[in-house]
Design a protein around this nucleic acid. Structure first.
Length: 778
DNA sequence: GTATTATCTAAGTCT
DNA sequence: TAGATAATAC
């Protein structure tokens, strides 16, 4: 079999040892994906039924790509039936078919983080808890990590350690919130992301017949990125693999970067203990990067304590040193990066797709974006707010959700008054109270509004009736119409399209276009055959909705996006590779994140994250930092990251001179062209972190304020207000004025401090001059 | 109940 | 800075 010839010794061993537990420790760039694909191809070639293979990947995109690659080796007919996908998508599928066993409807809703947070807020309000103390995010995180450790609300409340933690944090009632949250989700027929794993565990625990069925279905189990699995995932794998023990886990402890999500690095460190028979294979040869990059990355990771011993090496050529760039501001950093990319495109005949800009936080994308746009360099931003999380998209999808699962309370609350139909907050509160009092779902109250006395007047009752009739009329068409036809019908009949169409602001137009795009996507979905099933029944909304909550932007990359510079967080860059990598924002408190500085474990995770970033690169790495940047709406001074110091200095090269570091006073002119500082060659190896950098220790003259988090704020000299409250302006009839949101308009009349303005885009508006932020155009 | 504007507050990573 | 929420006028 010639594919085996393409593997080195350890890769080949990892592919051929198909029976029994196997752990593959795969250093960065060591051909891990190749091993996984070939291992599966090998299984199929040996005659294993694709239906007996379960392959768990970290993203859906990775699954899709791997399936394609396997298909090329063994044929599509064979590869398409493998169970391959993320934990969440595979087990949500299984949960759907077994739902009734654990008391859930087959069409259960998947609550995304936003839904979950809204529900938490509702519960906090009902319990009379202050959401400034019980911060919804924090409460949700506590619940989430409890679930990932398989703790029910009861167990949470009974757990003395957790209780004392919560008491210490002055939030003793989180357990109660969890209990109610759990009940409300169940009542709504909804599962959040963590439930998809949690409930799978419940299913496998309480139904031995089901466990048996899947144990025998999945005779071969492969888990990618095993270092990033949490306890809940770990137990699922362990249970499913118990019958045959043909479990192959692949990972790299040095790349474990999801502890915040409950990932437990011990899972990989303890594999040997769980399966004493396990064979371990180490893939240590890096085929991706230059000597310099591999060695620099090794020099970073050795600052961490606990890890599996391995020696990552490469026989690639030495390559360039890692270049380190200094910028005065975040905007200038963007310019430096954009210029470097621009130049490299020509000097190395590189394509835009050869470049990646990686950052720690999504917020950093803005300055990069702007600089790239100025230079006309095509780019794509990965991550940030997903398309499916946009308000308008969630609104329309909430209609789909409520039609398919009327118990879905979060969806119902979202749309009962959108578009506005006269059912306001007071009414919704009354409905909610009635639902709680009668132990009924919100939908039951809504549909029986005439029969329950909830203190709502006849007019409003009628409006509610109109709404529920509307939803019911959609529900009736669920089986007869395909996804696209029904969705279009909903979009127009509900009034969403009209509402968005009437908004001619740029944001409004983009919202309208987003809806159109969703509809286009649905059309495509409707017309594509369902590859999982033999019969080609038209695909309806039910099918569409099944995994829409699990989709991310990465899952619908467009053709035209292929040759563009990639902007993404380091987390989402995991598993990817690029010839040229720019890691930006190499600053203390940003990377490593200020939140990680309190514990050694967190700092080590940041360091592994840096390791992941470095090892994405094939040819060149550029690190950059700014000495000041906008954060929290104000300019703040920054120091270079400690991680820069941690790289063995023989692998790095500074592109700036310490003495040319701008003094704080010069920062006033920081938007000057930076080219003078950007020349290579004036290397300064004796760079010391705490040199003349502005810092909390030698505060610059412009500092006015210090935040508790050691971040130094700079006065907002660079942000002149460009618009002021109109009472300071001499406005007259006939003037053209500009409003931030409404654009330009002509003042038609002014009286009693009120102006009637005819805006070019949206028509006439009455604005109170006391508040309206207007500027005079002419 | 709705629309508009003021005010607050949070920006960590992802399924 | 931007999104969510509160306050206010009508």
């Amino acid at each position: 079999m010639d594919y085996l010839q393409q593997l080195n010794e350890s890769q080949r061993a990892a592919v051929e040892n198909t029976e029994g537990p196997v752990m593959v420790i795969a250093g960065a760039g060591s051909g891990k994906t190749r091993v996984l694909t070939y291992r599966i191809a090998h299984l199929l070639n040996k005659g294993v039924d694709p239906f007996n293979i379960l392959s768990l990947t970290f993203t859906n995109k990775a699954a899709q790509e791997m399936k394609e690659r396997i298909g090329k080796i063994v044929g599509l007919a064979n590869s398409r039936n493998i169970w391959m996908g993320t934990f969440h998508s595979i087990f949500s599928r299984i949960l759907r078919s077994e739902a009734e066993k654990i008391g859930y409807p087959q069409n259960f809703t998947i609550y995304d983080t936003q839904d979950a947070k809204n529900l938490i807020k509702t519960i906090l309000k009902e319990m009379g808890l202050d959401d400034k103390i019980y911060k919804p995010n924090l409460v949700l995180n506590r619940i989430s990590s409890a679930k990932n450790n398989l703790l029910t609300a009861k167990a949470y409340i009974a757990n003395t350690t957790i209780q004392s933690e919560d008491r210490q944090a002055a939030k003793p009632r989180i357990g109660e919130v969890y209990e109610i949250y759990e009940k409300r989700c169940f009542k709504a027929g909804a599962m959040d992301f963590d439930d998809l794993l949690f409930k799978t565990n419940v299913l496998l625990r309480d139904h031995p017949d089901v466990l048996h069925k899947y144990q025998h279905r999945f005779k071969y189990i492969l888990v990618d990125e095993y270092q990033d699995t949490n306890f809940s995932q770990y137990i699922i794998v362990k249970k499913l693999a118990a019958a045959f023990q043909n479990v192959c886990v692949v990972g790299d402890d040095a790349q474990s970067i999801y502890a915040f999500r409950g990932a437990n690095i011990q899972n990989i460190l303890n594999f040997k203990t769980d399966y004493p028979e396990a064979k371990t294979f180490k893939l240590e040869e890096n085929y991706r990067s230059t000597q310099n990059i591999v060695k620099a990355a090794n020099s970073i990771i050795k600052h961490n304590t606990e890890q599996i011993e391995k020696n990552v090496f490469t026989s690639n050529k030495e390559g360039n040193k890692i270049k380190i760039h200094q910028a005065a501001t975040d905007n200038e950093e963007g310019k430096i990066v954009a210029n470097l990319i621009y130049d490299t495109q020509f000097s190395q005949q590189a394509r835009p797709k050869d470049f990646a800009i990686l950052y720690r936080t999504n917020a950093q994308s803005r300055s990069m974006e702007e600089a790239l746009r100025r230079k006309n360099i095509p780019y794509k931003i990965h991550g940030g707010k997903s398309f499916y999380q946009r308000k308008e998209i969630k609104d329309l999808i909430s209609y789909f959700r409520i039609i398919i699962n009327p118990q879905d309370e979060e969806a119902l609350k979202r749309i009962i008054n959108y578009p506005a139909r006269g059912i306001g907050k007071t009414t919704i509160d009354k409905l909610m109270i009635a639902a709680n009092n009668h132990q009924k779902s919100l939908w039951e109250i809504v549909t029986h509004i005439n029969k329950v006395d909830v203190g709502i007047n006849a007019g409003t009752q009628n409006k509610i009736k109109g709404f529920s009739d509307l939803i019911k009329s959609f529900s009736l068409q669920i089986d007869s119409k395909n996804a696209f036809d029904l969705a279009s019908d909903i979009a127009s009949t509900s009034g969403i399209l009209k509402d968005l169409y009437s908004d001619k602001t740029p944001e409004g137009i983009s919202r309208y276009e987003n809806i159109q795009e969703l509809l286009n996507g649905l059309k495509e979905f409707t017309e594509t055959d369902n590859e999982e099933e033999e019969d080609v029944t038209p695909r309806g909304l039910v099918e569409f909705l099944q995994d829409v909550a699990l989709l991310t932007n990465a899952d619908n990359e467009k053709e035209e996006d292929r040759d563009k510079v990639t902007l993404m967080t380091i987390h989402s860059a995991k598993g990817l590779e690029f010839p040229y990598v720019h890691i930006v924002g190499m600053e203390e408190n940003l990377f490593p994140s200020q939140m990680s500085l309190t514990s050694r474990a967190d700092l080590e995770e940041e360091r592994r994250l840096f390791y992941v970033a470095l090892t994405r690169a094939e040819k060149e790495i550029h690190l950059s930092f700014a000495t000041s940047r906008y954060r929290f709406g104000t300019m703040m001074f920054c120091e270079p990251s400690q991680f820069i110091d941690e790289i063995d200095e023989s692998f790095i090269e500074f592109t700036f001179n310490k003495s040319s570091t701008p003094s704080p006073a010069q920062l006033a002119n920081f938007d000057e062209p930076y080219s003078a500082q950007n020349s290579y060659g004036n290397r300064n190896t004796s760079y010391k972190k705490k040199s003349t950098m502005p810092s909390k220790k030698n505060p610059p003259p412009k500092v006015i304020q210090t935040t508790p988090k050691n971040l130094t704020k700079i006065s907002a000299a660079s942000t002149p207000p460009n618009q002021e409250s109109a009472n300071d302006l001499k406005l007259e009839k006939g003037m053209m004025v500009n409003h931030q949101k409404f654009g330009n308009g002509i003042i038609e009349n002014i009286e009693n401090g009120k102006a009637s303005i005819n805006f070019q885009n949206i028509g006439n508006k009455q604005l109170l001059l006391k508040f309206a932020k207007l500027s005079i155009v002419k």
